[in-house]
Nucleic acid binder design. Sequence first.
RNA 1: GCGCCUGUAGCUCAGUUGGAUAGAGUGUUGGCCUCCGAAGCCAAAGGUCACAGGUUCAAAUCCUGUCAGGCGCGCCA
Length: 580
Amino acid sequence: MITHLQENFSRAIQELKQAGVIPNELPTEVKFDRPRQKSHGDMATNVALGLAKAAKRNPRDLAQLIIAALPPSDRVEKLEIAGPGFINVFLKPASQFEILKTIREQAQYYGNSDTGQGETVLIEFVSANPTGPLHVGHGRGAAYGDALARVMRRAGYSVQTEYYVNDAGRQMDILAVSVWLRYLELCGEKFEFPDNCYKGDYIWDIAATVHREQGDRYRHPAKDVLQEASSPDPEQSLDMLTGTLRSRLGTDGFERFLRTALNTLVDDIKSDLSEFRVEFDRWFSEQSLYDGKTVEQTIDKLRSADHIYKKDGALWFRASAFGDEKDRVVVRENGVPTYFASDIAYHHDKFTRGFHKLIDVWGADHHGYIVRVKGTLEALDHSPENFIVALVQFATLYRGGEKVSMSTRSGEFVTLRELRQEVGTDAARFFYAQRKSDQHLDFDLDLAKSRSNDNPVYYVQYAHARVSSVFRQAKERNIDTSGLDSANLDLLVEESEKELARVLSDFPETVAAAARKLEPHHIVYYLREVANRLHTYYNAHNVLGAVKDLRSARLCLLDATRQVVANGLDVLGVSAPEKM
RNA sequence: GCGCCUGUAGCUCAGUUGGAUAGAGUGUUGGCCUCCGAAGCCAAAGGUCACAGGUUCAAAUCCUGUCAGGCGCGCCA
């Protein structure tokens, strides 16, 4: 409908250009929006206001000329010039319900469009270090990233999703050491567990696995071990502990602890996300960038282009040449690459795989890192504007009106799994999706798990269940619902029917806009409106009790509504129940 | 100190990238089931869009400044 109007208005403007009324260099695109007030018609445009100055005419006169130049349309009832020069369009009733047939034809594909024109996009999200279970902060990133992928796919982008597994570097060493120390405790060694090791209970579980399979094979006197690695600097002593682990157990022993921990944790994260209805196309290993020499080659490439230099024994990237505050270390004095090094290689690799656009979903606390990475991409001759970072703020949980305190360091955080178990996947995903991702989110646990009318998740799901129920009722009453395609939609004359159909016709546009802006939260607000229109209508008018032809038309409307609600919930990864 | 983000109804937040009388949920008040699902609907009340300037036919939206809050400024990730 909108495109129909846009085409007609563009033609009118073309014509006025040829007539010399409007200068040629001005755009011919016409934007329509939905007026808040019914008296302003079904659609409205401000083109005349925008072009008036350049055309040296007053807006209302120009609007008049545009209307006069408009090709005839059988869908338009009348046109009005209003206010300072808006053109309000009133549509013929019949054309407003055409959409119902389209929806029922396209079914689960209704809302899809070719806005993205097949552009290849790689969305990387969550990517939490495999050093422990996911917490509620990661949950938000997961909900956002997945909804973004879904909405962009519907909008015609060619999307792939990826989880970057940080399975290399010092964090992994610390993980292996942590498991080994817990293992020693299981063997009966007594000592004080270091503060800077991972202390979560899951470390015990992993240690127990090794102990069960290998017995005391890797046992060494704790006293000797800790003495070997004693240093006034706890961080340094941790690194020394890594050295001890390697030298005493050999590469095989070290690998056993590391692999067991890594596999256990990655598997745990995978199943956690899967139960959260988040699936990735690929799990990308950081270590593979080292094994395949990608890190080395990428750094060499930067070095040969003089973007990297040596200072104080370390290798530095000239980030300041790309707008960063200072240059950044890529390889440490001790020869160990920083996280930044593999990140450069990773993003370079993403572009060389052929993706046109990269979207990274990061925690908002990493925003200082963006300029740096963008800089390396520019240095590697990629377009930095095709690298987009979507920042996700952390969520604060509330229970009983009180903030739930969380601290990653002490291991006292609420895990995503706990959240799912407490409120359920539907509520969790819906609540996460409700807010713009770069805004703080107050997550009210009591509200999310309440099975009451306060809960916004149920409000939308209820609309779906309610319509489903009508069709169940129809079946019980032996009402034939197979011929709805030929229903006479002219019988739909109620204002609330018109409004419901109109909202339904907005869905593709809403999806496209959400995808363009990387803001899936618009779907939540849209669904609330659809649900509200449905409930309002349903409350005021009887469907199954109406006479046959009217009943068919109304069932057609309800079925289309159900479809749109289901499609919208699908974008958010929330189920559309037939019964509640 | 510098950089990024935010300030909209009592509370939690939307606001289609500059449009017409700023919206929703929740809370408060009052109505609506003899009838397809009341987990619903309707109505009322609630606002100096932080503040002050500027840009123009038009500003919650854009530019400048002030105030307030959050985050970041490692050879951590």
